[in-house]
Design a binder for these strands. Structure first.
Lengths: 143, 143
DNA sequence: CTTTTTTCTGCAACCTGGTTGCAAAGAAGT
DNA sequence: ACTTCTTTGCAACCAGGTTGCAGAAAAAAG
C-alpha cells in the first residue's frame, strides 16, 4: 500500500501520521491474520518496542486497529476494515489453533448476536473458537 | 458445600483431593461470578499463590474449572457445572463491564454456534460481550 | 509401625508481555 | 533562527503468571 494512501486513511480516523506510524500500519497490510505486539517487534526491527506499543495504542483509540483476545497472553491486532465509523458489534469471529498457536480471521462468518438482559449495554463483542486449524489437522491425520 | 461432597466431585473428575484443593474449590462455591487468580489469593490467605496456581491448573486440566478470558490481563475461572463429561461448546456467554471491571456470567444465554468452514475442528468457544453492566449504568444515568 | 517412595506445598526467584519516565530528536508554528 | 509541542528510544519498572527446589505430608511397601 502506498504511503500517501495510508496517510489519508489515518487522517480520516483522526490520527496524525508519522514515519513510524506508517511503518506500523504498513506492517499490517499484506498480512491477513492478526498480529501480536511481539510479532510487530520482529517485523519492525528499526523501531523500539515502546514506540510500536504507543503507535498501536493510538491506533486502537482511533479505531484504526481492533484488538483480538484469543485467550493467549498476547493480544493480537488487525486493521479495522471500515473507512471511518466502525460498528464494533458487527465483526467477524476468530479461530485460535491450539496446535500451532496461530489466530485466524474467519472474515465470512460474522458474530451471531444475542439478546442481552435488560439494561446491559453492549459495546463490543468477542467470539473466539479454539481448536485445530485445517493445516494442523491434516498433519495430525497423516500420522 | 460439605467437604466430602467436594471430594466426591473431584474424584468424579479424576482429581485427587487434598486439603488445599478443597479450599480452592470451596472458594468458588457461593461466589457466582468468575474469579481471577489474584482474587483467589486474597480469598485464601493461608495458601501460597503458586499452590493456588497449581491447583487451578490441575482443575482446568480435568474440567473441574473453566477459564474465561474477558479481555483483561487476568484470566478468570468458574466451576464447570456438569458433573462428569463437559461439552465445552455448550456454554453460556459472559459480560465484561468496562466501568467496574467485573465479569458476569449470563447463565441463561448460551453461546450461539456458527458453521465453521470445512476442516476447522472446534474444541471450545468463548463469547464475551463488553460494555456497561446494569449497576454501573444506573449510576451513570443518575448524574 | 517403620521405611521407602511419591506427591504436594511454600518460598524465592524468574520470565514474559506490557507500560511509563525521561531526556534527546524531530516537526511545526512564529 | 527560535520557541513550542510532539514523537521517539532507552532503560527501568510492573504485574501476572510460572518454575526449581527442598522440606513436609501422604501413600505405598516392607
Amino acid at each position: 500500500m502506498k504511503n500517501n494512501e495510508i496517510v489519508e486513511r489515518l487522517k480520516a480516523k483522526g490520527v496524525h501520521a508519522t514515519a513510524n506510524r506508517l511503518l506500523v500500519y504498513d506492517a499490517f497490510t499484506g498480512l491477513h491474520n492478526p498480529v501480536s505486539l511481539s510479532a510487530l517487534e520482529t517485523l519492525l526491527p528499526t523501531m523500539d518496542k515502546s514506540s510500536i506499543f504507543r503507535a498501536v495504542r493510538l491506533f486502537l483509540k482511533h479505531d484504526v486497529l481492533h484488538a483480538i483476545d484469543d485467550g493467549t497472553k498476547q493480544v493480537k491486532y488487525e486493521i479495522c476494515p471500515s473507512q471511518n465509523e466502525c460498528d464494533a458489534t458487527q465483526r467477524h469471529i476468530h479461530f485460535y489453533c491450539e496446535r500451532c498457536g496461530q489466530t485466524f480471521c474467519l472474515d465470512d462468518i460474522s458474530i451471531p448476536t444475542v439478546e442481552l438482559p435488560e439494561s446491559y449495554a453492549a459495546h463490543s463483542i468477542n467470539y473466539i473458537v479454539k481448536g485445530t486449524c485445517p493445516s494442523c489437522r491434516s498433519k495430525a491425520l497423516q500420522k
